[in-house]
Design a protein around this nucleic acid. Sequence first.
DNA 1: TCAGTCAATTAACACCGTTAACTGAGATTA
DNA 2: TAATCTCAGTTAACGGTGTTAATTGACTGA
Lengths: 197, 197
Amino acid sequence: MEIIERKPRNREQTRSGILKTAKAIARREGWQAVSIRKIADAIEYSAPIVYEYFDSKDVLLDEIRNEGFRHLYQEYDRILTVYRDPEKRLFEISLVQWEFARQQPEIYQVMYNLDGALCSLPVHQSEAMQAVSRIVCKTIFSFIPKAEESIRRLYFQWWSVSHGMITLAMLLKNEQPIEQSEQVYRETMRRFVRDLR
Amino acid sequence: MEIIERKPRNREQTRSGILKTAKAIARREGWQAVSIRKIADAIEYSAPIVYEYFDSKDVLLDEIRNEGFRHLYQEYDRILTVYRDPEKRLFEISLVQWEFARQQPEIYQVMYNLDGALCSLPVHQSEAMQAVSRIVCKTIFSFIPKAEESIRRLYFQWWSVSHGMITLAMLLKNEQPIEQSEQVYRETMRRFVRDLR
DNA sequence: TCAGTCAATTAACACCGTTAACTGAGATTA
DNA sequence: TAATCTCAGTTAACGGTGTTAATTGACTGA
């Protein structure tokens, strides 16, 4: 009865193959070019097979989005173990956010429905995203022990500045070199965490 | 020969009817639901007629985008005539940006390719957008007369903070009341313009 | 009356997400 | 052994998409 052993293993491989292929097409041609049929072709199956792994395209995109948030969470968590100084922590977290958006723009796009990517499942209900929010809020709280309401405001501000610069840097990258944007980003985030004290 | 007179007039009406219909559908059902056939139905024509006014869907979206930037330009220009104090000017411009995104979110979406809207013509080549950039840079320059390079950096920062807060406020509007986001926005932009001195 | 013009239409092409119906090979049972 | 069942994987289909070619049909000028 090899079937019971081989099937689940291949199943997991096929599933991650679907996700990997979707990301590869998005990276190469943009999210508007990602179709179920194209994914199926790439993994050498017919289109309906994809629906045995994901109920809909929306659910597939949602999984990629959550992968992104989980990846971010792990990176943030790693930073908390490496650095003790809260200021250093938040600054390093900011840099990781930048680096992530820079190296995996297609993931960042689907996380925030950017550039034609559209996942209609509400992102604020994502457990993975909420975990990211909590870990950043915790970091802010660790050196600004204020009321929860204040922390959420500071988090909203930090997130806005970071996200705004990242998306505009992407948008303008053909006329404003990414290195220049990165420099401004570093200075701005540096100042933000300094002013928190 | 009424034809020479009636035709152009109706033509202009039809054209703006197409644009108006596209925006109405986008507002009601989101940009992913905007199709050429649906627009044609609404204006009581067949689909190919739309192509006599716009070469492609991309061009149609580009026009809506430019309408948005031109509208913003006019509002900013009006503020420059109303207020003389540079600090006041930039703050009021910030508030107009917020109000615009709040009242016409579907336009803001297509301007920045948000939430499934996708116009593949590069936005940084839009003359209307460049005019907006110039008028804001001019405003910043008027009370921080620095080198052009510095002005562009300050503009990038202002734009990022404003755009970041607007997009995140939209994203989180179901769990963080828009009034609360607006309050944080006002405080943040107030502080930004104050710190410019 | 005939030919020409031209706005507007229908029909078509190659895609899309999604689902139902079908195939065919291997396992199970009589 | 022969018949039945299971089930992974397929093809076919539905209604939609952007876009273009072919076609209609009413009005114009000769």
